Amino acid sequence: MIKNLYHMMVFAKVAQTRSFTAAADALGIGRSVVSSHVSQLERNLDMKLLIRSTRSLSLTSQGQILFESCGCIAREIEVVQERLDAQHSEAAGNIRMTCSVNLGTGVFSGMLAEFQRNHPEITIEMILEDRMADVVEEGFDLAVRTGWKDDGRLRLIKLPTPRILICAAQEWVKQNPEIKSPGDLCNVPWVQTSLSTPTGKLRLRHRSGTKKQIEVTPVFSTNAGLAAKLAIIAGAGVGLLPDFAIQEELHKGTIISLLPQWTEEKDHPLSVVVPNQATQSRRVQLLIEFIKTNIQRTHISGDSPKYPRH
């Protein structure tokens, strides 16, 4: 059926131009290919559609009926194509995205709510899973990931690499000795997350490039960044958190960044991955730019924190 439809569209162009050569030029294919499509259509329908001579080409009665019907079909296809092109170019419609539970609950829920308020004509479906979803097979418009697995079907868009900060709650900072150097972390209760290096080992990197390994004492361990954040806010101890996940708390002073010149030694790059196709809808482009801008503005300065007075 689908093959016959294309044969019909080629036939309609021949009937319209009354020329195999003109039809081939209009369709951007070879004359012999045009002739093959028409011949195949005639065989499939078991009827003659064209009367060919050395100087002219005319339609049989069946060919005239088919040509009139094909004209209606062609116009309908053009209307559908125009509607699809319009939706593709405008900022409207649904975006289906996926990311990890940690990223979704800790970062993107609030961020995407702001995006949707700015673009009420766009709807968002966010699927949170810790497994690596198949973006193409599962019909996602984009995914946000840490790290990168090579896949020729996908295109990588790098996001600013977050800084993993040493953090504590404001109340904890008030009630405990000031942390002046990495060595002081040996003596504090540590909140361990999967962002960190193996339990009890903390590897840090200074802005100058200097590296240090510290022995810490975990009192609370979790594989969920949101759980670590809540434990730190509750005063469980000191731990590592990504800068983009704690901007509101840093601004309010709920969380204090300790030793801001130091970060975790290992980087955790973020990226957006999208299907590797020629074009991308306007709404997806807008969301990607919004995510990049928001991640970029979360990078805090390296100035020393202002400790609350004890």
Score class of each variant (00 low, 15 high):
36 S>N: 11
95 I>W: 06
213 Q>M: 06
230 L>H: 02
122 I>G: 00
237 G>A: 09
69 S>V: 03
265 E>A: 15
30 G>E: 04
4 N>G: 03
171 E>D: 14
32 S>Q: 14
167 C>G: 06
192 Q>F: 02
246 I>A: 05
224 A>H: 09
204 L>D: 04
254 T>W: 09
23 A>R: 11
299 H>N: 08
130 D>W: 04
45 L>W: 03
80 V>Q: 11
173 V>H: 06
55 R>N: 09
195 L>F: 12
268 H>N: 11
39 S>D: 09
76 E>V: 05
31 R>W: 00
107 V>G: 00
304 S>E: 15
228 A>H: 08
167 C>L: 12
135 V>E: 07
111 M>L: 15
153 R>Q: 11
221 S>P: 00
196 S>P: 00
308 P>E: 09
226 L>C: 07
182 P>G: 04
66 L>Q: 06
236 A>D: 04
104 G>C: 10
10 V>C: 10
175 Q>R: 15
91 A>S: 06
14 V>T: 03
22 A>R: 14
257 S>G: 05
3 K>G: 00
221 S>G: 08
172 W>F: 15
142 L>K: 01
240 L>I: 08
128 L>S: 08
206 H>I: 04
202 L>S: 03
281 S>I: 01
278 A>F: 06
198 P>S: 12
160 P>S: 13
75 R>W: 06
48 K>C: 10
110 G>S: 11
221 S>Q: 12
49 L>N: 01
73 I>M: 15
256 I>Q: 10
193 T>L: 05
190 W>G: 00
